[in-house]
């Protein structure tokens, strides 16, 4: 089996994988980083979104081997020294999550959104989250949270 090496949440990791191993399987099964979820099999729900080299990507639609040498950040890598990332904090403050299953992917997408649109209006946020499906919240409080986080992230 081929070997793959990458940096995940700042740590160098390396493992043998079957070529068919998806990045999300690598994270969940080899690294026990189960915060990245799988909610569909057609690359649409966005529960699996992580950052690869700073960009949001659906970890269910990229092979582990494609990401040789990449810098990967998962939901587990956001909080620093016990402090929630401003996006995580805003989701809590504005009740932007209910069951929590879509939340990791939603938060990772939202951070990328704010990076590319530092002062997003409501429409930008709503359209920018089209790759993430939430069944619980009706999105309203997610939108509020992203707006607040954008303000707090110094946009």
């Amino acid at each position: 089996m081929p070997n793959v090496s990458m940096t995940v949440n700042g740590k160098a990791v390396s493992a043998e994988v079957e070529p068919r191993t998806l990045l999300v399987q690598f994270l969940r099964e080899k690294l026990s980083l189960t915060g990245t979820h799988v909610g569909c099999d057609t690359s649409q729900c966005g529960a699996c979104v992580v950052h690869i080299n700073g960009k949001s990507v659906k970890a269910c639609t990229t092979l582990a081997l494609q990401n040789e040498g990449a810098e990967v950040t998962t939901i587990e890598g956001l909080a620093q020294n016990g402090e929630l990332h401003p996006m995580q904090a805003a989701f809590k403050e504005h009740h932007g999550l209910q069951c929590g299953f879509c939340t990791p992917g939603m938060v990772m997408s939202a951070i990328d959104l704010v990076k590319t649109h530092p002062n997003p209006d409501e429409k930008t946020i709503r359209e920018g989250l089209e790759g993430n499906i939430c069944r619980c919240t009706g999105y309203q409080n997610i939108v509020k949270a992203v707006k607040t986080a954008a303000d707090n992230m110094g946009g």
């Binding site: 915060g35 979820h37 799988v38 587990e76 956001l78 909080a79 995580q88 809590k92 999550l97 939340t103």
Partner: peptide
């Protein structure tokens, strides 16, 4: 009241069945 359960969900520490 802000939800007590949120921290684990927001940090990837929720424990769903497939986890």
């Amino acid at each position: 009241v802000r939800r007590k359960e949120d921290k684990r969900f927001l940090t990837g520490k929720g424990r769903y069945l497939d986890d």
